[in-house]
Design a protein around this nucleic acid. Structure first.
Lengths: 137, 137
DNA sequence: CATTACTCTATAAAATCTATAGAGTAATAG
DNA sequence: CTATTACTCTATAGATTTTATAGAGTAATG
């Protein structure tokens, strides 16, 4: 399951994407409309900024805005930034690989290959879909 | 990511499936061969028994054994029993549905439909694969 | 230069995951 | 019938992650 952080982050991004025409969006605005704890949201948006998804502007007329076209931002990227690995096991993660301490031989592990298959399956969908697709609904 | 409990559980099931011809399998045997903390494994196997996946026999010559043909046990079932929901959000879970407290209208939620699609995509694969498939590797 | 709004650090409650200990009970062999 | 084997059950507890909250600070705008 996705963490609340991820869910909040995605909802916030959709909100910002939809408001793109009206300039930067306020944290407090998103917080109220999407029922997300403000301080928590603040940290999430900061994270998204750190990873180059969002930009921000301070002072009057400030707020957060997207740095790229929503069509260029894949769901795979967003879930990785917000939630972490997409793979079900660390040993089949492409971006967060980690060896399993148990498991003497990865190639002979019964789970390894199967989980790699699951990963590919999920990734295939998540890379096809973008933030733009979420704004259509 | 799957919990260690799930990983341990799956490895144990594969081990038991492979040993099916030699009668019930000992906890301590699985624990040693698969490098799984014995007491932790004990709890996991008990869980699997509770859900009708495993049976057990006490005393000499006892141990755990599968109650069904490995081909009849889908990976979807196992992950649900061991790890919980397959869906990425509670509101799109078929077996563990829960309404999101935020989110006034599920039908209008931008995440809801997309996450349902992800769920179907994953489920499709997990229901095709069985414990038997894992024993082949 | 006052206001607005993001930034940064610290903190902490709550939940979940991982693991361990030990007494208890059922089954079997001999 | 009894010793041994092996699962059962309850309790507990450390570690980690998740979900938040508070408040002082800083940059930009008009």
């Amino acid at each position: 399951m996705l963490s609340k952080k991820t869910k909040y982050g995605l909802k916030a991004l959709v909100y910002i994407a939809k408001q793109a025409d009206n300039g930067p969006v306020l944290i407090s605005d998103i917080s109220e409309k999407e029922t997300i704890p403000k301080k928590f949201l603040e940290a999430i948006l900061l994270d998204l900024k750190k990873f180059g998804i969002l930009g921000s502007k301070k002072g009057k007329g400030g707020g957060y805005y997207l740095l790229k076209d929503p069509k260029e931002i894949t769901m795979a990227t967003l879930i990785r930034v917000l939630d972490g690995p997409i793979a079900m096991l660390p040993c089949v993660s492409l971006n967060f690989y980690e060896r399993c301490e148990d498991c003497p031989n990865e190639e002979l592990c019964s789970l390894h290959h199967f989980m790699a298959q699951v990963r590919d399956n999920t990734l295939n969908l998540l890379q096809q879909k973008s933030l733009y697709d979420l704004t259509l609904l």
